[in-house]
Simulated assay, not measured.
Amino acid sequence: MTLVASPPSPLTAETIRSVIDTMPVQGRIMLKLILLQYFDITDEEILYIVTDRPDPRCVAGAKPTNTTMTKESITVVTDRRNQYRRQVRLKRERTWLQCDCLRKLAQLRESFADRARSLLAERFAVPADRLETLRAAARTVLPRPAIRLLEERWDADEISADDYQQQWLSVEFQTQLRMAEKYRKRLDLAERERQSAISSPLQDHEIGHVWGIPAGSLAARKVKYLTQYLQALQATLQNSAAATTTAPLDLWKETFSVLAAQPIERSMSTYDGLEKTESALIDKLTALVWGNLAEEVEVKFWTSLVFGASSNAMHSEITRNLFGLQRLATILNDMDHSPEAVDEELLKRSAPTPKPEDNLLEAPAEPPTKELSEMQVQILNSMRGEDVTGRPSDKW
């Protein structure tokens, strides 16, 4: 059965922007507030919001016609706009970074597993059925007890260096397979959260907090201008040159899909105290990328990395910092993913600890004798009653 590809949507970001720009100022502000993660409220529109807000001191009677603007009221509206804009855009960026990093980590773990399998098959001549058995048991194997037992056998001279390396690579092969599956499951959850984030408009109570109008007036304006926007968008699509294609049935849902496809603007993040020092954070991120973190440590570290669980951050989008995720994405992009680099890393990890030989043990070297300075020699001679030449001095 041949699947017929759906025709591309005629809706574009430029079309959406042009329709919103042609709306009245009140409707334009309403649509931009609803789509705040994709649009900005200009300074002129902020001034309109300030003049349009009812005076909280006038609880009854007619609204004053000569509304005066104060610097304080403009600052309040601007701060609230910035607060919700940062909140929704940080959530969009965080979910995108999270999905991007998880996708690359899953591919990296699969690459490590493939190279470990190739080394076992080519260098150590492990049969294919044994490799399939290792793959099938990857979910249930416990790597730490296996590595501990392997170290004990190596220290007791029960296995050779090649056998040690082969068994270590077998455990690493299973570990990389299990981590790849774990990252794919995390990626599925992150994709769901991302789809929810990019399709979520600003809520009514948040719009009301910015605009400062009653809930009834807000609901009426929202219905009015959403209807006007969808009708204008439908008319624009029908009159455009792309009218031959099938227009999307749900223009509102398609609006979010088209806007979400635009590039994400990266936020400026500063170090917020995760892992106590920035160098320690970078080292731990590098270990995460190369797969050197223990699984129980990796789970806690990933949770703190995604949810901003540091000393100066809270579990909310307002105070969340994306410094760790941004650095993780940078390390993943700069990493050498070539098969040669992966093979070198795996062979270096699997190499057994060299044992010291008895005949090569050297006696500890004696510390070098430190020469005395002229001042120290003079002090010693004075204490012995001698002059500079070492002869007895008549001063004593």
Rank of each mutant, 00 (worst) to 15 (best):
L259E: 05
L97I: 08
V19R: 11
V25R: 06
P214H: 13
F301V: 03
Y48A: 08
S217F: 10
N333L: 14
N333G: 02
R221E: 00
E152C: 02
R81D: 01
Y183E: 08
D358H: 12
A113C: 12
E265D: 09
A341G: 00
M335G: 02
S267D: 07
G27M: 04
M69N: 14
S240K: 01
L322P: 00
E345T: 05
E110R: 10
P367T: 07
I318R: 12
L134I: 08
K185N: 15
P145N: 02
D21A: 15
A113G: 11
T389R: 05
A136V: 07
M30V: 04
I159S: 10
M383K: 14
S304I: 00
L3D: 09
A5H: 10
T245V: 09
L274R: 04
V210E: 06
R320G: 12
D162C: 14
Q37N: 02
Y183L: 12
H337P: 03
L274G: 01
L33C: 11
G61T: 12
L332T: 03
T353G: 05
I41K: 11
L285C: 03
Q378V: 11
E132W: 15
E371P: 08
L346R: 07
A247V: 12
E151L: 07
K276D: 13
K284C: 01
S196F: 05
D163N: 09
T319R: 10
A125V: 00
P339S: 08
V223I: 04
S111L: 14
I318A: 15
L36F: 00
Y48E: 05
P10F: 03
N312W: 10
M268R: 07
L293F: 00
R221S: 01
I159Q: 03
R80H: 00
N292L: 09
T227E: 09
P8N: 06
I282P: 06
S311Q: 10
V377R: 13
L120Q: 02
A309D: 12
R139F: 13
K355D: 00
